[in-house]
């Protein structure tokens, strides 16, 4: 009798409706990426193909060069300040009683909309008489992305680090020695992926530079590609005009592919370390 009871199928608490709703949410999100990418492919791919023709590359080089220029200029200061700020916030002893407030303030800074930071930069630049330039935009991009870099670096330094920090502290190691000799080497891969994520933010960010420099300026000026607009602004300025929609879609596709590749690299770089952390 008891064996019969055990051999029965266990009572299932299956609730079809929640399962269907959750599944619908997931596949709806998946569907939206397919719709967006499919739409961009359908509208932009013919233009990408035609851009590969003899005259195409010339119009693409300017925006791509400007994108690279801004990224190369903005990334190092954003990364350096972000990592150092994270090092300072990662150990409660560095800010003492203010440590909790410092961490709260750092996460709060990240919530300021980039459009406001850019607007403030525009006003400040106008007040001191600076002319809009790609270098100025790169400077603003660096500032805008510092909180993001700080947040990512802080997460890289503090994930599953409490016991390590405790052990090293109990051995008499000072806070910064622990960060530099124990936590930073351990977080190396995660930090590299953080740089790439911040780089993709800079590459994909349009609002800041568009505000700072104004979108009415033509996509390229003169022979020097340095005066061209980054790809994101290029798309942004043309986005709403129905007659150039194909070009816009093509540029957006190019930008999305570039960012997907970088994000993919960032994830691959972070993956081996998460595995090694499981061992600790």
């Amino acid at each position: 009798m008891a064996i019969d009871a055990l051999s029965d199928k266990p009572a299932r608490m299956f609730r079809p409706l929640p399962a269907v709703v959750f599944a619908a949410c997931a596949w709806l999100l998946c569907g939206s990426v397919i719709v967006i990418v499919g739409w961009l492919l359908a509208n932009g791919l013919p233009k990408v193909v035609s851009a590969l023709g003899p005259r195409g590359p010339e119009s693409a080089i300017g925006p791509l060069f400007a994108t690279a220029y801004i990224t190369v200029l903005a990334l190092p200061p954003a990364a350096a300040v972000g990592v150092f700020a994270a090092m300072g916030a990662s150990d409660v002893r560095i800010f003492g009683a203010a440590a909790g407030s410092m961490r709260s303030a750092l996460s709060l800074v990240g919530s300021v909309p980039t459009v406001i930071v850019a607007y403030a930069a525009l006003l400040a630049a106008a007040a001191v008489g600076w002319h809009p330039s790609l270098t100025g935009a790169a400077f603003v991009f660096a500032i805008v992305n510092m909180p993001l870099m700080t947040g990512l670096a802080l997460r890289a330094l503090t994930t599953r680090a409490a016991k390590l920090r405790e052990v090293a502290t109990a051995l008499g190691a000072p806070p910064m020695y622990i960060v530099i000799s124990v936590l930073l080497p351990r977080a190396r891969m995660r930090l590299r992926s953080a740089y790439i994520i911040v780089a993709t933010q800079i590459i994909g960010g349009a609002a800041t530079i568009a505000i700072l420099a104004g979108a009415n300026v033509p996509a390229s000026r003169g022979a020097l590609p340095i005066h061209a607009w980054p790809l994101a602004v290029h798309i942004w300025t043309r986005g709403s005009s129905a007659d150039v929609y194909g070009v816009t879609a093509a540029s957006a596709l190019l930008l999305a592919v570039l960012i997907w590749v970088l994000q993919g690299i960032a994830q691959l770089r972070a993956a081996p370390e998460s595995a090694s952390q499981e061992d600790l």
Binding site: L29, C30, S32, V33, V35, I36, V37, W39, L40, T200, I203, G204, G205, A206, A207, A232, I235, W236, G239, T248, A249, A252, L255, A256, I259, W260, Q263, Q267
Partner: peptide
């Protein structure tokens, strides 16, 4: 993940 990485301008174009 791919959707998360689409730049804002990509959404705008769509």
């Amino acid at each position: 993940g791919a959707l998360h990485a689409v730049p804002a301008v990509g959404y705008g174009v769509a």
